[in-house]
Amino acid sequence: MAEGRERFGRTLEGFFFAFALFTIALVGIGFGMRRWLPPLASEHGAGIDRMIRYLILTVGVLFVIGHVALGYFIWRFSRQDRVTYRLASPRAEKLWSLLPGIVMALVAEGGVLLIGLPIWQKYYLHPAPPDAVLVEVTAEQFAWNIRYPGKDGRLGRTDPRLIRYDNPLGIDAEDPASQDDVVQLGVMYVPVGRPVHVRLRSKDTLHSFFLPHFRVKQDAVPGMTIDLWFTPTQTGEFEIACAELCGFGHFQMRGVLRVLPPEEFQRWLAAQPTFSGQ
């Protein structure tokens, strides 16, 4: 009698555990099917999104199978009064371990080798195309400095010792290449449909140039100039966030990225004052 009650109790508990795990799997499905990524606005971002969607799908299936299997096992075997399967043979153990091994080789390694790394290589290992718009982005606590090379296509020399209130980048006025440079604070303008070549630098601590809609994230490291490029596919106003802890203002290190039609971008650039004031 007491044994029957005890058995009922653990059956109920096993059922509860299984129910909890099934619910978690369902919540996972519900969440996983929602659209979380910010709307896409860049060309290479489509590849990154494809990688992420592949993982959400395949890993999501494994997440559901894992939770359902664990829940089912707990439910089923908490009802048993005796052990029905004790010890697998060494051969069976080896054979069964092929299953998780192969699944992971396909999902994880296969995913990165077939989908992930080709995009990675396109994004990182190729220099910016020659027709790209060159923009220098210099991060500082807690702002983004934007500089365009002007008509000569060359960015002037900078030196931190020349940094003043009215020359936040320390641009060398002696350098002829500096004269037509255009410097902006916090707002970056780029044309749509043309590659943007960003030269990323930092004045003080680490920062990270994060364009959530463009699937761009790159740490800015003091002492290094890091090149990256992306091609905007949508016009509009987007946000630049900092993604590497940089101090107490990290959470409000916001910049704006305005993507304009090409002619409008040219008009805007031509209307900006240059470093030498012409």
Binding site: R10, L70, F77, Q80, V83, T84, P100, G101, M104, A108
Partner: peptide, 24 residues
């Protein structure tokens, strides 16, 4: 590559329940 041995351990953990007289 770490996912492979990790998945084997995870699988072994779940498979250890098979045929058990599970006491919660």
């Amino acid at each position: 590559a770490i996912t492979i041995p990790s998945a084997i351990i995870g699988f072994n953990l779940i498979a250890s329940l098979w045929g058990a007289r599970l006491q919660l």
